[in-house]
Amino acid sequence: MAAREDIAEVAAPRVGGLTFPAWQRLLTVGVLIVGLAIPLFVRNFTVFQLTLVMIYAIAILGLNLLTGINGQFSLGHSAFYAIGAYTTAILMDRFGVPYALTLPVAGVICLIAGFLFGLPALRLEGLYLALATFALAVATPQLLKLSLFERWTGGVQGIVIVKPDPPFGLPLSQDQWLYYFTLAVLVVMFAAAARLISSRTGRALKAIRDNPLAAKAMGIDTALYKSLAFGVSALYTGVAGALGAIVIQFVAPDSFTFFLAVSFLVGMVVGGVGSIPGALIGGAFIMFVPNLAEQVSKGLAWAVYGVILILVIYVMPTGAAGFVRLVAGRVARVVSSNR
């Protein structure tokens, strides 16, 4: 886990006259332009799917802030996703709050929920933490079904919400509008995550990940930071859940099972633990690969999915981000040694 330094930070080899960070920026702008253009050229259903990819990416990024940056595991992020989704659904359905305003509320509620869950979780490490969060994931759908809360949650039936129309009479379909709306949220949240990681707080979080004892000795309040990491992580995933509710127009307990938490974990590992852009790749993976597997074989879809997953891990044991870094490092070395 030690060799996670960005190659770009260690040395700045130039490839094609540009440094690694410059390439990254160029690539970011390129991806953004493509992202802006895509919905104008593809079917509404594809737009809808791509919106979901972005939503998953935000959720995975949330998990990544916890695991990749702070070194804590969670198999329970489906719970925060659910809390975000239900917050939005209840606010829209029962209280008539406009959808955009529900996002910050969902975020704050999840921040608090995550922070509170993070406090007791402080005592747990590694596998034990994974188990405690696993418990959270399994308990969530059951709690949502509880008749006690049925007045708000709609019990097993869940809540159906109305799909928002584009504002200001924009000439867009509902799906296209939600795509752009999600894209905007994603850009803000990804940028914020990048800022967070390179800030003082981010360094403290990484120090805790790499050596908790030393971090403590350096005067970092590990308890506070670890709970905070849980809170922020939950905030991201909660906002993703809120967006998910709006886009899918429906929430129900069984959409937020342990399976969802596992998907986030898979997405994170496939994209690359600790990588921000990797979250997008992870989001795309958990969105499209199950469908792909189903096309290969209907009856054995999940077996095919498992095989694909194993192959991906074999080819890229440290995820897509690690793979890209490895290849980029090789290229840089070859280029610089040819000079």
């Binding site: 009856g299 999940w302 077996a303 095989v307 997953l309 891990i313």
Partner: peptide
């Protein structure tokens, strides 16, 4: 054995993969 040196999280993902393969093949 081939991924002995991969990070723990990658192992966990392979467990997940095994889970879905066994479940699916048994059902099939």
């Amino acid at each position: 054995k081939p991924i002995r040196n991969a990070p723990v999280l990658s192992h966990i993902v392979v467990f997940i993969a095994m889970f879905s393969i066994l479940n699916s093949v048994a059902g099939f």
